[in-house]
Computed example of a mutant assay.
Amino acid sequence: MKPTGDDVAGLIARSSPAARRRDAETLTAMMQEITGRPPQTWGTIIGFGTCHYRYPTGTEGDSGLLGFAPRKSATTIYLLDGVDAHADALEKLGPHTAGAGCLYIKDLEQVDLDVLRGILERSLSWVEAGGTDQIQLTVTG
């Protein structure tokens, strides 16, 4: 996937319901502060920075260092190191659901933002360290 260059503010403005727009603004500010990189669109995903990933199978591509998508049912936060790496923190986060590499939050006002910030900071550190044998990461932007 590559950055699409669409307007980030426009993507946020088109998000619904209103809580998703509010949460997108909060996450945009938080992730920009954590990464030190401006937001950019990757289709319907708002990403920060770029990295190249490669699996032992040969599958490879590009991704944001951190990113999220303001979906109608919940905000999806993408964690390249997977949610299992944050099991202890997730117990303290507040209401959420999770997939292998995704964290789903319906309302940021109901979660502990300090815990979320810690999860995002640890995930970014993992990416910047180059991943593991299972996924090799190279920060490219």
Rank of each mutant, 00 (worst) to 15 (best):
Q136W: 08
T59C: 10
A74S: 14
T44K: 15
D7P: 10
I45F: 14
L113T: 03
G64A: 10
R21V: 04
C102G: 05
T50G: 15
I119V: 14
I77H: 01
A100N: 11
P3R: 10
P38W: 05
G5D: 06
A69R: 08
T28M: 10
E33F: 01
E25I: 11
V8S: 07
G47N: 06
V8T: 02
D112N: 08
Q134Y: 14
S63C: 13
L120S: 06
T41R: 08
E25G: 11
A98D: 08
I12T: 08
S123D: 12
F48W: 01
K72H: 15
G130C: 08
H86V: 01
T76V: 14
M31F: 04
D84A: 14
R122N: 13
H86E: 02
T138E: 15
V115R: 00
L108Y: 00
P95L: 03
R20P: 11
T138N: 06
Q134H: 15
T75F: 00
L108K: 00
F48P: 01
D88I: 09
A24I: 06
G131S: 05
P17A: 01
S125E: 13
G118C: 04
G82I: 02
I105Q: 05
L11G: 02
T44I: 14
T97Q: 12
G94M: 05
L93M: 03
T28C: 10
A100D: 09
T28R: 14
L65V: 15
E109P: 05
I45Q: 10
V111R: 00
T97S: 11
V111T: 00
Q134I: 08
L65M: 14
T28H: 04
T57K: 11
V127H: 10
V83P: 04
R117G: 05
A129N: 12
I12H: 06
D62Q: 12
L124C: 07
M30S: 02
D62T: 14
E109L: 09
L108N: 01
G118K: 13
